[in-house]
Design a binder for these strands. Structure first.
Lengths: 337, 337
DNA sequence: TTGTAGGCGTTATCAC
DNA sequence: GTGATAACGCCTACAA
């Protein structure tokens, strides 16, 4: 129907000719401000429709130095929460006219590459949603200076070159700590994810110190190598197998839901324990699984959509970059603790 | 360290000047064939390194009409299997030098938009990983003709404009049917996902007809509105509540794991049944969850990485487009059936 | 409101 | 092997 199939796409020039105007007028017609008369605009749009014309974003980016592209770097696809974030980010950024470049940075080299291509594609921002090594990578990254903006999403970064968009881990974990304290448990265990930099230990630190100052006892902790439910399953299993029966925890506070889900499974299937009957467990993130009847996980829900919204505004330069690491979510109390 | 921070990125021109060659030589140095003398190449590369130069992909795409960009359209983030696909696709395409544009096409309008921007960004291919409406959308889509390639991934499409990369549903489901038949069940139920076009009914049809021709009985079926474990949970619950006790199925064959997981949860938590003790369940996809102790789901594993590899080759024009809808995976037998 | 230069940083192609 | 010319399709000025 429209235009000539199999041929090259129409350009502003073609439309201009058909509409009887200059091609600059055509380009203007496709911008929001559009200082153009209604009549010519109509004519242009009609011609454009007939030729199935749409402005070339490559040429536009090249000329304007704004790509409306954001690249998302993810190094961990084992945590189901990543899918939730991707959904929110693509939805919200898309609504703002920003396209998303998704990059799998499973290896360190990949992250360097990703940052380099991000620059080569002139992305307006590179967003790290990685769990691991973010800070080290940012610090090392060559060419970081030419990337529009460097943003760490859903994780606090201590790197000054980057801006963090995340919840206030300290206050979030304080709320969780209070809840756990009110449960009357006496032997808590904190299950942490991969240890990288100091900023990442905030949840653990907040819980441990909060508990200690309230009870006088310093909780145990254990570290899992990645935010993967299956790995948590294995590590929790071997850890608890090494624990004398009488020194078992009665509540396991996990750094996030991925760890919590693996923990609950291990407790059930490796040790035949009930949650919360024999042992309580808490998470962080409120992934879809957390709400399942099988888990009914007490957790903390981050305002992902609002955070994504903030990200969009930062990228578009419509928002001040202060307070972005102070988002507040809410405690979701279910049956697991 | 390198170059001048906060300034604009270096161009080939800058490097040329520093290396004492012309800028065309610089550009040539950055291509694989590189018809260039070793000495000048060294000089150029050294200069490039000093200036932290990297070719501008926007300009390259504009001039060459190849963007090395593939856009992935996803309309359903509730199915955890999507994360597995995204991991494989980003990993494999990335290894081939293809970047991935991720687009959330939750609404029909979004898909049209996505296809349009795909064209505007001159993607080399648009890949639909949607579960719903793919065919209708493809058929309606304006501007489809200007998109390098239109590919439907992990789903058979009957649309001629698109090429499907997927397993042979018929043979895959035949294998599953045989397995279920050998289990000695007598009242199977097929749980299907959203019904769209005929191609999508292949698994159901294969199972139903296979069972019928083997036993003489035509299995019941039930339809779930989306590939969402939680929705499956609800719909299975209400469906079974309407079933007289004596006409309950003894095996539920699900179109995929998302439905199977929701089904198992519903059986356990709404009806107190055991799987496979009281009832067997099968899935399709072999998502990570399927391997969990909680489910131990018998399912069918698609060769996602190989399919992603094929996709890369098709996009790069290195592969014939035949047999792409005939991939073969393997039956994964666990405890659920 | 509309038209005009000049330039964005490459690639393709042809000279040397 | 290297240099040069002409696109690629648009945007930011500025002039009419």
């Amino acid at each position: 129907m429209a235009s000539t199939p199999k041929s090259k796409p129409a350009t502003a020039e073609d439309v201009a000719e058909l509409a009887g105007v200059s091609r600059w007028t055509v380009n203007r017609a496709f911008k929001k401000d559009a200082s153009i008369s209604k009549r010519t605009l109509d004519r242009v749009m009609k011609a454009a429709a007939r030729l199935d014309y749409a402005p070339d974003l490559l040429a536009a980016s090249l000329a304007s130095d704004r790509s409306n592209l954001v690249s998302l770097l993810i190094d961990d696809f084992a945590n189901p929460h990543k899918l939730v974030m991707l959904e929110a980010l693509t939805r919200v950024l898309g609504a703002h006219g920003l396209d998303v470049l998704l990059v799998n940075t499973a290896s360190q080299k990949d992250t360097q590459d990703a940052l380099r291509t991000a620059r080569q594609r002139r992305v307006d921002a590179a967003v790290l949603i990685g769990s691991q090594l973010s800070d080290d990578l940012i610090a090392q990254a060559k060419g970081t200076d030419h990337i529009g903006k460097l943003i760490v999403f859903a994780r606090l970064s201590s790197e000054v070159q980057a801006v963090s968009i995340c919840v206030d881990d300290r206050s979030a974990m304080a709320v969780m700590t209070d809840h756990v304290l009110s449960g009357g448990y006496s032997r808590p265990l904190f299950l942490a994810g991969p240890q990288t930099r100091s900023a990442h230990l905030l949840r653990q630190q907040t819980f441990v110190e909060g508990w200690q100052s309230a009870t006088g006892f310093r909780p145990e902790d254990h570290v899992v190598g990645s935010y993967d439910p299956r790995q948590a399953y294995r590590q929790v299993t071997s850890f608890l197998k090494g624990c004398p029966e009488d020194s078992w925890p009665d509540v396991i506070v996990c750094e996030n839901d991925a760890l919590a889900v693996g923990t609950i499974d291990a407790l059930r299937h490796e040790f035949g324990r009930n949650v919360p009957g024999d042992l309580a467990v808490t998470g962080f993130d409120d992934t879809p699984q957390a709400a399942d009847q099988s888990y009914q996980l007490t957790t903390y829900r981050q305002p992902i959509s609002a955070m994504a919204e903030a990200l969009a505004q930062v990228v578009l330069g419509q928002r001040d970059e202060v307070g972005l690491d102070r988002f507040t979510g809410e405690l979701v109390i279910r049956r697991s603790a």
